[in-house]
Simulated scan of single mutants.
Amino acid sequence: MDLVIYSALALIYLFLVVRIAAQLSAKRQWLNYAIFQIFVLFSLAYDNGIIAAGRFIGEGELLKGLSGVRFWLHAFATPTLILVGYYILRSSQVKFSKHIITHIAAWLTTVSLIIYQIVSSTLQEVKSLIPIEEYEVLRYTSESLAGPPFMVIIVGFLLLLIGIIVLVKQKWVWLFVGTLLLFVGQALQIPVASTAVTNIFELILMVSIWITTSKALDSQRP
Rank of each mutant, 00 (worst) to 15 (best):
D2M: 03
L3T: 14
L3E: 11
A10G: 05
L14I: 08
V18G: 02
I20V: 15
I20P: 01
Q23W: 10
L24W: 03
A26E: 15
A26P: 05
L31P: 02
N32G: 09
I38R: 05
V40W: 06
A45C: 01
N48C: 05
G49Q: 10
I51M: 03
I51R: 03
G54R: 04
G60W: 01
E61I: 11
R70P: 05
L73G: 14
H74P: 05
A75E: 05
A77D: 02
G85M: 01
G85D: 01
G85P: 00
Y86C: 00
Y87G: 07
I88L: 12
L89M: 04
L89R: 02
Q93V: 01
K95Q: 09
F96T: 07
I100G: 07
I101T: 11
A106Y: 06
A106N: 04
W107L: 12
V111L: 15
L113F: 09
L113V: 03
T122Q: 09
E125L: 05
I130A: 12
P131I: 03
E133K: 06
E134V: 14
Y140R: 00
T141D: 10
S142I: 07
E143F: 08
L145F: 15
L158I: 15
I164A: 08
I165G: 06
V166W: 03
W174H: 14
L182W: 12
Q189M: 06
V192R: 07
E202P: 03
I204N: 03
V207F: 04
V207I: 13
V207C: 00
D218P: 01
R221E: 14
